[in-house]
Computed example of a mutant assay.
Amino acid sequence: MGCRRRASASELLRVVVQRSEGSQNRLIPDLQRRLSGRGAHVHHSTNCLDQAVRKRAFARALRIDGAVDVAMVRALVESESAERPTPAHEKQVETE
Rank of each mutant, 00 (worst) to 15 (best):
R74M: 09
C48T: 03
R84E: 04
P87Y: 10
L49A: 10
D30M: 01
S36Q: 05
A71S: 15
Q51G: 02
D30V: 00
V17A: 15
G37N: 00
L76V: 08
A82K: 14
G22N: 12
R14T: 09
V17I: 09
A75G: 09
L12N: 03
S79Y: 03
A71R: 13
R84H: 12
A57C: 02
L13S: 08
V73Q: 02
E21R: 11
L27P: 05
A61S: 12
S20R: 12
L31S: 01
I28R: 05
N25K: 13
I64G: 05
P29S: 02
A75W: 03
A82N: 13
E83P: 01
R26T: 15
V17C: 14
D65T: 09
S81F: 07
L49V: 10
I28D: 00
R33T: 01
Q18A: 12
S23K: 13
P29H: 03
R14S: 11
Q51F: 01
R19W: 09
L13A: 08
R26M: 08
S10W: 03
R74T: 11
E80T: 02
R84F: 08
T46Y: 08
D30P: 00
V77D: 09
A57I: 00
D65P: 06
E21M: 05
R54E: 12
R54K: 13
R84Y: 08
V70G: 03
L13E: 13
V68P: 05
A9H: 14
A61K: 11
S81Q: 14
A61C: 08
I64W: 03
L49H: 06
A57N: 01
R14V: 05
G39Y: 06
V53W: 04
E83H: 12
R34K: 12
G22Y: 09
L62Y: 04
G39K: 02
G39H: 09
I64M: 10
R33L: 03
A9I: 13
R56T: 08
S23Y: 10
V73I: 00
R63W: 07
S79W: 00
E78L: 11
M72R: 15
N47C: 13
K55L: 09
F58L: 02
V16C: 15
R60G: 10
P29M: 00
T86V: 15
I64F: 02
V77W: 04
A67R: 13
R19Y: 10
D65M: 07
P87H: 11
R14M: 04
S10I: 06
V77A: 04
G22L: 10
S20C: 06
V15S: 08
S79F: 04
E83V: 14
A61N: 08
R34N: 07
V15D: 08
R63F: 06
R34C: 04
M72H: 10
H44W: 15
Q51H: 03
A67S: 14
D50T: 06
Q32I: 01
C48Q: 03
A75I: 00
H44Q: 06
L35I: 01
S20D: 12
R63M: 09
A71G: 12
R14N: 07
H43Y: 03
Q18M: 05
G39I: 01
V53T: 11
V15T: 12
R84M: 09
A71P: 04
V42K: 02
P29F: 01
L76W: 14
A82Y: 09
V77S: 07
S36H: 04
V15A: 10
S10T: 07
S20Q: 13
V17G: 05
H44I: 02
R26G: 04
N25C: 14
